[in-house]
Nucleic acid binder design. Structure first.
Lengths: 264, 264
DNA sequence: CGAAGTGTTGAAGCAAATCAATTTTCGTGG
DNA sequence: CCACGAAAATTGATTTGCTTCAACACTTCG
């Protein structure tokens, strides 16, 4: 099985064989974590950078009344906390949604990795895509009805998981509970259940025992008003997503030169 | 009047006199823009980096049904698009909310600025704080009632504006319409109106002809469940915010060393 | 001074929350 | 392998926060 981190970063830059070897070594030391366990808690400054290699994790905030808001999902290949090192303190927690395999990369290894131009740029890209996803989620939560919002999330996951080889053309494992989805979408668990049924009734999805299948990907994307541009992926613009609307605008571009990067 | 960009970046690092001179020069060439004008449109790759020096601007997404979602507010001192350069394409637009004074900093100037360690780090910090704000907004939209959500936004603006010298202890200019607030909070303009009245009835705020006053800052923060940690500000933790709950956890820290920064 | 944009108010409707009960699934130990 | 308990999913009834539509008032500015 291919390394999801390498697959992901290859979306941003052309990694050399040397880059790949370095990344392979950096992610060799894996450990297993059960579901619903915290990887980092609020106020706890992390010493290592964590990468999810298998399973789903999340970034979440707990409000004083006990309710929680999940503000990011981490799927295989995702860094959990690349950015936090520069800000003194965590303003949120990171925990697993399902059982996970994670890697903890020590600071020195990150420094070594970022000594390589392509990897440095790919890490930049990953950080910025995280922010782009956040913006899309915010827009989605603000202005989309919950059935479209959920459908949108499922489309996003399809592409993100495909990019790291964890989804095939129309299906993937979705190892999360309806309550976890509810905390992500900002709705109640009961309503998630009803929305899922609604999507099933319309034959937009199939979901049983954590296996999601999308009979007609294009139709679901249409329904969710999903435009994959914001994911800034290179490979995964499939037939389904390419043929929609103005496909010339949608073709992926190589990552642009960055002023900040330039200056290094 | 002090330079808001310098004031903002001084929140993150100790700028030297030389740093300040550089930043002053970089922001010398200002221009005025009316309200509701686009600074950058979707799909238009920006050639310069834009900084708001006066007035309010925003980052927004337009959904196909015409509704829009504002996913970030830019107040004086804020970069609009520092990050976009690395991703090939804009997945959103940037426009003014009120009349603004903006600066367009050419690529080369940015490269020159980022040649200075402290400035580079401060720009990093600014980017990460933007993401932190986005997370807080997402949590807020997901799990807070709209009166608390609006109150939370007003608290955030108080601190952000104070940091750049555009708010005093308990008041500031809020040059936006209720419709713009609605697009930000993900609710209808009518409801914004009612929520504002509700806040006024409770003497939590005063708002007339775009001037906001908060009679009891601490009480509004309590009401909004506002915890300023996520803004990662150094100076602006006032009496009001410091005395709440566990203040020892709340004192600002110097910006930590960053692995990515280290590697430069 | 008039027109357009903004703010305000009321009434009706709807999406989603809440509460509560029930069934199904899943993990675990006997 | 089955039985049990706990977690998760499902269903129904009721309530509520917010939307929508529509009318009207105020403000701002050319």
């Amino acid at each position: 099985m291919a390394n999801p981190l390498i697959m992901k970063l290859a979306q941003a830059v052309d990694l050399t064989a040397e880059d790949r070897v370095l990344l392979e070594f950096a992610t060799a030391d894996r450990r297993s974590v059960g579901a619903n366990e915290d990887l980092i808690q609020e106020c706890e400054p992390p010493e290592t950078v964590k990468v999810v290699m298998d399973g789903f994790a999340c970034r979440y905030k707990t409000l004083p009344d006990g309710r929680r808001s999940i503000v990011a999902w981490f799927v295989p290949g995702d860094f959990c906390d690349l950015h936090v090192a520069i800000l003194g303190r965590m303003d949120h927690s990171i925990g697993t949604l399902s059982p996970c395999t994670v890697v903890e990369i020590p600071r020195e290894t990150i420094e070594e990795l970022t000594g390589h131009r392509r990897i440095l740029r790919a890490l930049w890209w990953a950080t910025l895509v995280d922010a782009a996803i956040l913006r899309e989620w915010l827009a989605s939560m603000g202005r989309r009805q919950s059935d479209r919002q959920l459908a949108h999330l499922l489309c996003e996951l399809l592409l993100r998981l495909r990019a790291v080889g964890h989804a095939d053309h129309d299906s993937y494992q979705l190892p999360v509970t309806q309550e976890q989805m509810a905390d992500t979408l900002g709705i109640s668990a009961v309503h998630v259940n009803r929305v899922l049924q609604h999507l099933r009734e319309q034959d937009l999805i199939t979901l049983q025992s954590r296996a999601l299948r999308i009979p007609d990907v294009e139709r679901l994307m249409e329904f969710a008003d999903f435009d994959p541009t914001y994911l800034h992926l290179r490979d995964v613009l499939t037939e389904a997503s390419m043929h929609r609307r103005d496909s010339s605008q949608r073709a992926s571009q190589p990552v642009a030169e960055s002023p900040l990067d330039e200056a290094t």
